[in-house]
């Protein structure tokens, strides 16, 4: 296939390997549980819905009493134990879910436009700003989408859907020539 002709979308899709994940549930209104978790994590937990904090780990808001901690695969086991211990006195749940998630990085000037083919969120850089995340649908899979700079998004997807999602992304990023209006 000739590479002449209109350009393909400017987008690069990669898998971030070596990642570990913890699912964390606690009641933010109950005692000092949040603060106890923050001491172990070494960073603030996002309190606002659909935001994340980035530090040594990324901590994503999943629900009013649920978070996803993304960290290094090597660190996840110890971090999980430390969190479980620190939260021992609270009603909390810490689960290692490293095997259950795949993290993808989507970068490029057309990244958001390609994502918009399969996502009903408003991904305009003014609307979906760095620090925001959202659980939503992409293609026909459920994903966690997080905004980096205007040309970068992180996608966390359940492992069993990751093959489908990578095929979907590759397909959506493929066609050349079609006018891709900036969102």
């Amino acid at each position: 296939m000739s590479e002449a002709g209109p350009p393909r979308p400017r987008i690069a899709i990669s898998v971030r390997s070596g990642r570990g994940f913890l699912n964390l549930r606690l009641n933010p209104r109950r005692g000092q549980a949040l603060e106890a978790a923050e001491r172990i994590l070494g960073q603030p937990m996002p309190r606002a819905a659909n935001t994340f904090t980035a530090g040594e780990n990324e901590v994503y808001w999943l629900g009013p009493d649920e978070w996803l901690v993304a960290t290094g695969a090597k660190r996840v086991s110890a971090l999980g134990s430390e969190l479980a211990e620190a939260l021992g006195g609270f009603h909390a749940a810490v689960n290692d879910v490293s095997g259950g998630h795949v993290e993808l990085l989507v970068r490029g000037a057309d990244a958001r436009t390609v994502l918009a083919k399969g996502c009903t969120l408003d991904l305009h850089p003014r609307e979906f700003v760095p620090g925001q995340c959202a659980q939503t649908g992409l293609g026909r899979a459920a994903v966690l989408l997080a905004a980096g700079d205007p040309s970068t998004c992180t996608i966390v997807v359940r492992r069993s859907f990751s093959g489908y999602l990578r095929r979907w992304l590759a397909y959506a990023a493929r066609p050349r020539g079609a006018r891709l209006p900036a969102l």
């Binding site: 083919k117 293609g139 026909r140 899979a141 069993s160 093959g163 489908y164 999602l165 095929r167 979907w168």
Partner: peptide
């Protein structure tokens, strides 16, 4: 149908041993 044709018609979930 859009992109939802062929192998993308419906998500195919696979196990880690697939």
């Amino acid at each position: 149908a859009g992109e939802s044709v062929g192998e993308l018609y419906d998500p195919v979930r696979t196990t880690a041993i697939h």
